Simulated assay, not measured.
Amino acid sequence: MDAAAEHGRDARWTAETLRRLARAGRTEFDFSSIVSVLSAAAQTPVCVIDTRGSFLASTPSRAEWDADEILTRTAEIVGDGLVVHPLIVEGETVAFLSARLDHDPGGVCQFAADLISMYLSRMNARLEGKRELVAQVLEDFFAARLPEEDAARRLAEIGIDPGTDHRVICGIVDAPPERLRSFPWNLHTLVGSGRDPYIRALIDGNVVLVVPAAAPARVIAEVAHERLTRLGQDPRVGIGNVFKGLSGLRLSYYHARTSAVSSPGISDGMHLNLGSLLLLANLDLPLKTLSDEVLAPLVEYDAQNHGDLVLTLATFLRLDCSSQRTAAELFVHRNTLRYRLTQIESLTGRSLSSFQNKMHFWVAVIGSGAQAEPQADYLESLHALDPDIHTPTIRPEARS
């Protein structure tokens, strides 16, 4: 066959292969057909592998591949019996298309890679739309703008079982919200069920994940931190504790967010700190729920032992942490007061010698409504000293 005939055959083969690839690319929820068409046309094994070395598609299915050999080719490289093209979604390389060829005949491999990239981008856009709806529900829930029954129903609609305990993981990084919103977080989500493995949304510019209590939170946080590292400097991830019920899920969100703000890297196991929460400048916090959680060990102790630890703490703070004045008002010996304060420190894990902890407990006492009358007198005395002094805003339900 002369050169012209050979060229004509190659041109017809290229045109037919491109046509078949384009037709396969119109398949809505599967890109493996593109891999199969390319493999059959080029009569060679073809695969798609993600950036972590997991094979997402391979034809033939039993073909042997060296993941390291593919992943070390960080750009489009042809040669040594291997063609590799990156798959791009929102400017990020998320995977590679590889074929065992010495060259890319007619650019069909590049065309196949472009089709798969378009498919993944389309799936990513669909997920982005779903996450917008999830974010609206979570924002309303965390801000306590939903009645309890409505909250349970709407959470169930977005995939959160109200009867199961969850925790929240919060990621913070200096990156544009648009970038955080469109970043291809999980490739397997795009090629699998089309659903995020865990509920994820962008709230107040932060990446928020809601995961079951039994999920490996530290592992999930490490993956989140790695993703955020690709988006900006000094990424921070906070892991919220697991608390019971719907109010506990809300509490876990503020715990995770405070942890992320307070410490670099990945933070978990941190105590709640109401002072830090107020510094977030969110005066719509569910302050009573947060405060009740802080005082819970003392309330439980008082109930079981007929004690007065909450009264003691509230009085101690109201009287400017004066042991002498507190003992006199409570009609107890100073040694008794000292013993109670030691119990408070032991049960809560916080030292009353720390100014930050005193502020923490002071906000908790106010938010819980403990000792309402002395508290009101205390706030009035503060305003008498300085009319412009700022005190936390408490929603009406927090005083009930």
Rank of each mutant, 00 (worst) to 15 (best):
S353V: 07
A398I: 02
I70E: 03
P176V: 12
L319T: 07
A57E: 00
I160V: 15
N282H: 13
K288H: 13
E345S: 14
S351L: 11
E90T: 14
V94F: 12
E300D: 15
N186D: 14
P197C: 07
G106R: 03
T336I: 09
S322K: 09
L311A: 11
S323M: 09
A15Q: 13
H188Q: 05
I389R: 12
G25Q: 02
W13S: 10
L120R: 01
G159E: 05
S33M: 08
G25D: 00
L228Y: 06
F316A: 05
N305R: 14
G106T: 06
Y301C: 10
I160S: 05
G129D: 05
A327N: 14
E300S: 14
E90Y: 13
L272A: 07
Q371R: 15
H390P: 03
N357G: 07
I169W: 03
G245F: 07
E139K: 11
A175K: 01
N186P: 03
L287R: 12
D292W: 08
L274H: 13
L330I: 06
R62G: 05
P177G: 08
Q304D: 14
R19M: 13
W13R: 15
E380G: 07
L115R: 02
S267C: 08
N273R: 11
A260N: 09
N206M: 12
Y119H: 05
L319P: 07
L138K: 02
R338C: 08
I389T: 12
A3H: 10
R325L: 15
H225C: 06
A328S: 14
P176S: 14
T14K: 04
T93S: 10
V48Y: 02
G245T: 01
P197V: 03
G205T: 00
V48G: 06
S61D: 10
A376Q: 13
L87N: 10
F111P: 00
R179T: 15
T312L: 12
A5S: 13
G81V: 01
Y198P: 00
G269K: 14
F96E: 04
F96P: 02
L295Q: 14
A372E: 09
I158C: 07
Y198A: 08
L187S: 08
D66R: 11
D268R: 09
P60I: 05
L285T: 06
V261N: 09
L246N: 00
E373Q: 11
W13Y: 05
F96T: 03
R20Y: 01
R154S: 13
T289P: 01
L313V: 10
D80N: 12
P212F: 02
G8Y: 04
L272Y: 13
A67M: 06
M359I: 11
I220K: 00
H390C: 09
F243P: 00
I203R: 04
L231M: 14
S381V: 00
D80E: 13
A95E: 02
D165F: 05
I158S: 02
I266T: 06
D377M: 09
D320W: 04
V207G: 07
T289M: 04
G205Q: 03
V83M: 04
H360Q: 12
L280G: 11
L279M: 15
R167I: 00
